[in-house]
């Protein structure tokens, strides 16, 4: 394995561990949540993992009464700040990375308001592709933004996506057929949030099916979020 591949594998392992911890917390199991317990502060890979997880790094704080572990907010916000500083958004305003950067900033403001000072400004990502992309590409990109599907977050994006609900539902069908569980889970999470998801999709059984077929911890975060926050897939 090349050094680069080794680095990527190590980062993926850290992300997978953190995702498992987040999914556990979203199910209301385990200890009270703290990002800094899920990702070791001293691990050099932690900021990158936070940046990849985006708003999901703080998702358990969005649970009803989910205040997190006592006193964790300050350290968690510091870890987020570190991630945002180390990995700024790139030059492409339409990129997934720009959107997830914004999601992480928004989530920190919404979920850790007492510690949201000194956050960098949220970029304004380009959104014209939400109307113009054909459904397969739209679905792929939107699935990568699934961490933004949190209560109180990304309301404007959700409104825009509701206009393409049928297309995203088609993307879910395609993703399941391709056994692309992460994409299916990400789209399923959005579809759980959107009000007009066609009943004939069978979203609830679809989410359960993906859960059973996939062992992927990031898919598990999406599926748990769909169930916990939007009541689908129970």
């Amino acid at each position: 394995m090349t050094e680069q591949a080794q680095g990527a594998a190590a980062l993926n392992a850290v992300i997978a561990d953190a995702a498992s911890g987040i999914a556990l917390a979203l199910r209301g199991e385990g200890d009270p949540y703290a990002l800094t317990r899920t990702l070791p502060q001293e691990d050099a890979l932690s900021p990158a993992a936070v940046r990849v997880l985006g708003a999901d790094a703080l998702a358990p704080y969005a649970l009803d009464g989910g205040r997190g572990a006592d006193g964790a907010g300050s350290a968690d916000a510091a870890m987020v700040r570190q991630a945002l500083t180390a990995f700024p958004p790139g030059d492409d305003p339409a990129a997934v990375s720009t959107w997830s950067y914004r999601g992480l900033v928004e989530a920190t403001r919404a979920l850790l308001p007492a510690h949201a000072a000194q956050l960098p400004p949220a970029p304004d990502p380009a959104d014209d592709w939400l109307d113009t992309e054909p459904w397969p590409r739209l679905s792929h990109r939107v699935s990568q933004l699934a961490s933004l599907a949190l209560p109180g977050l990304a309301g404007a994006l959700t409104d825009r996506l509701s206009g393409r609900t049928e297309d995203l539902a088609r993307g879910f069908v395609r993703a399941v057929r391709r056994r692309d569980w992460q994409q299916a889970a990400g789209l399923g999470r959005w579809l759980a949030r959107l009000p007009q998801t066609p009943p004939s999709l069978g979203l609830d059984s679809g989410l359960r099916f993906v859960q059973q077929m996939s062992g992927d911890p990031r898919a598990a975060v999406h599926l748990t979020a769909a169930r916990t926050f939007f009541g689908r897939g129970r």
């Binding site: 399941v176 057929r177 099916f209």
Partner: peptide, 8 residues
């Protein structure tokens, strides 16, 4: 008219 993603 079953779940459309189950079609093979």
């Amino acid at each position: 008219r079953p779940e459309p993603w189950f079609l093979e």
